[in-house]
Design a protein around this nucleic acid. Sequence first.
DNA 1: ACAGAATATGAGCGATCATTCGCTTTTTAA
DNA 2: TTAAAAAGCGAATGATCGCTCATATTCTGT
Lengths: 229, 229
Amino acid sequence: MARKLLTKPRKTASQERSRATVDALFEATARILVKEGFDKASTNRIAEVAGVSVGSLYQYFPSKEALVAAVIKRHQHKIMHTVRGELAEVLAQPVEKAIRKLVAVAVKSHRVDPRLHRVLAEQIPRVGELEKLETFNRENYTLFRTYLESHRDELRVDDLELASFVCVTSIEALTHNAVLHYSKTFSDETMEALIDEAAYLVTGYLMGSRKNEAGSLSDQRHAGLHSPS
Amino acid sequence: MARKLLTKPRKTASQERSRATVDALFEATARILVKEGFDKASTNRIAEVAGVSVGSLYQYFPSKEALVAAVIKRHQHKIMHTVRGELAEVLAQPVEKAIRKLVAVAVKSHRVDPRLHRVLAEQIPRVGELEKLETFNRENYTLFRTYLESHRDELRVDDLELASFVCVTSIEALTHNAVLHYSKTFSDETMEALIDEAAYLVTGYLMGSRKNEAGSLSDQRHAGLHSPS
DNA sequence: ACAGAATATGAGCGATCATTCGCTTTTTAA
DNA sequence: TTAAAAAGCGAATGATCGCTCATATTCTGT
C-alpha cells in the first residue's frame, strides 16, 4: 500500500508547534496582502515572511488557493466574532432602531482590519475555490429577510424578498464604500452622519408613507405589479 | 542615434490592416475574459484567438496591462455611447422623474455586455495601471451632485456631498447586483419592479418629509450636525 | 517597378511561481 | 532510552508567462 500520509494529507495541526506555524502563515499572508498586494503574495514569499519553509506551508494547505481561502474565512470569522450578539438583540427591536443598529453593525464589521478587507474585496480574483466564498453575504441576506417577516405589519413593502435585496445591498455598499474608500475623505463626524443617512434611507423605504403624493410617484410605479398582499 | 522606432513606439494604427489587428485583439481579449476568465487571458492565448502573433500585440500595446486597460476603456465608451443623451435630458426634469430615469439608465448601462462587465468588476485585480480606471464612477458622482445643486430647493437634504454619495452608491450597487448577479433569480417583472423600488428608495431619501414622526427618527439623528444651511 | 515604411511573425529568453520530495530535527509515548 | 510519529526544511522541477527581436511579408507613394 502506497502510504501518502506523509506527503499528501495536509490539514492536520495537532501539536503546539504546528499550530504556531499555521498561525504564522495566516499572519504572514495577511501582512503581505495588505502591504504588498496579491501579486507579491507568492507561496515562497509567504513562507519566508512567516519564518517557515515552503514545505511546511504545503503540509497544512494543499494549495495557495486553499491558504488564501482560509485567510478569507478567518477574516470573516473575526468579523462574526466582534459583531455576533449585536445582531441577536436587533431581532426584538422596532424597525427604526433595528435598522440603525444594523447599519452601525455593518460599519463596525467593515472596520475589522479594513485594509485586509479591501484587498480581499478588490484584489483577490474570484476564481476556482475562491468563487464559493461569497456565502457570507447570503447569511446577512436571510437574516434580514427573517427580520422583515417578523415585522411585516409595520412595513409598507409587500415583496419582502425584493425589499431585503434592496436594503441589504444598499447598506452593504454604503458602509463598504464609506469605510474602505472614503475614510480619508470623510471626517469622523461625516462618518457618523452617514450612518444616520443610511438608516434614514432604508427606514424611509421600508416604512415609507410619505405625506400626500397621490398622482406623482404612485402613478409612475406601474400599479398592479405588487398585488396587495 | 539608436533608432528604436521600429521596436518601441507601440500605439500607432495608421493603416487599415493594423486597425483590424487591434480590433481583433480587443475582441479576442473580451471573448477570453468572458469565456475563460482572467487567468487564462495570457498574451499568447489572446494573440492566438485573435488570429495574430504575439509580436503584433506588442506593437500596439506596451504591456498586457495596457491591453486590458484599453479593453476596459472601450467597454466604458460603449456604455457612454448607449447612454449619453438620456443623461442630458435628466437635468431638466423634476426630481422624481429624474431619479427614476437615472435608475433606468443605470440598469441599461449594466446591460451593455453584462458578462464582460462582471469579469471586469470581479476578476481584474485593481493593481498598477488598472487602479486608475475607477475614473468612471467619479463622473457619475459629479454629474449627480450637479443635478442636486440645481434642484436644491426641492430637497430635504442639506449636505449634498453626502447625499450624492448615498444616492450614487446605492443606485450603482442595486443595479450592479441585480443585473450581474440576480438576473437569473429575478424575473423580468421583478427587474422592472426593482427599478421602481430603487427610485422610490432614493426619491424618498432626497425629498423625504415623512408625515409625523417627531420624536422618533428625528431624535435619533443627532441634531445640530447639519446646521440648517 | 521599386524603395522604404508599416505591419506581421513566432521561436525563444529570462523570470517567476506553485509544488514536490528526500532528508533532518523535534516531539511523543512506552 | 528509544523508536516511531510529527513537524520542518529548501534545493530542485516543471510549467507558464510576459515580452523581445531578427526576420519576413505587405503596403504606399512615386
